[in-house]
Design a protein around this nucleic acid. Structure first.
Lengths: 206, 206
DNA sequence: AGTGTAAACGGACTACGGTCCGGTTAATAT
DNA sequence: ATATTAACCGGACCGTAGTCCGTTTACACT
């Protein structure tokens, strides 16, 4: 399923592969624990990989073997919230989940994304940073994009909905939304209202 | 005027300040020359500040005093093209410049931006990279945003045109456009067509 | 020319992300 | 219990952006 294949797969759950060694499991737990502590203590931006290795009593190589990169670490920390968010718009109750008309689902999706960024935006931005190439191709990003595209098609928009969905995704990009919220002090409600206006006008014009 | 105050001001042109010392001027020329060479030889992404200092026969401190950061260097290299682009949509002939109806100007603006990214996108991306804070507040970005906002107002869109302009700016963000062009191999014409579709639907719906 | 000084210089230094590789150890087979 | 081995470990190491500060130098004034 989407959900299973698109969110990061946790190594302890993977089947078919040789079992995880006990020391590896122990270090993974230590790292996750330390990472959560550090993020809540200093904020995601201030956490360095050396700091994490030190706090977890683990070598630096271990940190990078586990997470691949700083962005990977942040994605891992985000994956629970991300999976929950995905569940809500794929399987959850309308208007976010299936059952409502496409326009309403689009509006609800934007609102939910904005709230999501309000809560996890710092992590999300950190997860995107320093990934110049995969930034727009990370699994969750692709899924959001596809979701918007599908809703546009359902609404009858068939002029290159893929690119149109890309434009709408850009509007909801965590970095941009976070910037509006934090730097420009724009309240979430105003962002949501603007999103509603945007997609309403887009879909009404035919 | 906009043009003068919003684009980077070149130190040799600034009045009222103590005149630039001759060694400073010499090093500035050397740095600019070396930077252009290096970018055309290796591409913007591969140029490092050490490399630049070395090629210009100058200390590293001098490089950073001059440009402030890597992003600043890239902006400087971009400033001529940027100023030209600004001139075109502020003073140039319609439909990009004043004189055409707002929708046509918007369409032309998007097309011009896409072509601009095709030509200078690598530099533009490099100029935005590693500026997590100022990325969306750099003078040219603010000017583009304001320009779109003004056109939206002229077209009669008065429901939070500032935020709506922000959404449209997001669509034209160099990093995203470059990603579509290079990674997804989407031809510029298709991007332009999608942009036209987007703004047309937005403005037609009333 | 000589002198004072503020500006500019430059390279050593730090911080950080990321890599590498020789040593260690947990699981498995005997 | 012992041997084997593949996975894992950790920290030394690298490249790069950016800072710092003691030294040099262009300019202005006498």
């Amino acid at each position: 399923m989407f959900l299973v294949s698109l969110i990061p797969i946790r190594p302890e759950l993977r089947l078919g592969a040789p079992a995880e060694r006990s020391d590896a499991a122990r270090n993974r737990e230590r790292l996750l624990q330390a990472a959560k502590e550090l993020v809540s203590e200093c904020g995601a931006d201030a956490v360095t990989m050396d700091m994490l290795a030190c706090r977890a009593k683990v070598g630096k190589g271990t940190v990078f073997r586990r997470f691949g990169s700083r962005a990977g670490l942040m994605m891992t920390l985000l994956s629970d919230a991300e999976a929950e968010f995905q569940r809500r718009f794929i399987f959850g109750p309308p208007p976010l989940g299936p059952g409502a008309p496409p326009l309403e689902r689009l509006i609800a999706f934007g609102e939910a994304r904005i709230k999501y960024v309000e809560e996890y935006g710092e992590l999300a931005r950190a997860a995107a940073e320093h990934s110049p190439q995969n930034r727009h191709d990370a699994p969750p990003v692709v899924l959001w994009h596809r979701h918007i595209e599908v809703l546009l098609r359902e609404a009858g928009l068939d002029r290159d909905p893929w690119l149109l969905a890309l434009s709408l995704s850009a509007t909801l990009d965590p970095e941009r939304v976070l910037h509006s919220l934090k730097v420009h002090q724009i309240p979430a409600e105003r962002l949501a209202a603007s999103w509603r206006e945007l997609v309403s006008r887009l879909l009404k014009a035919d």
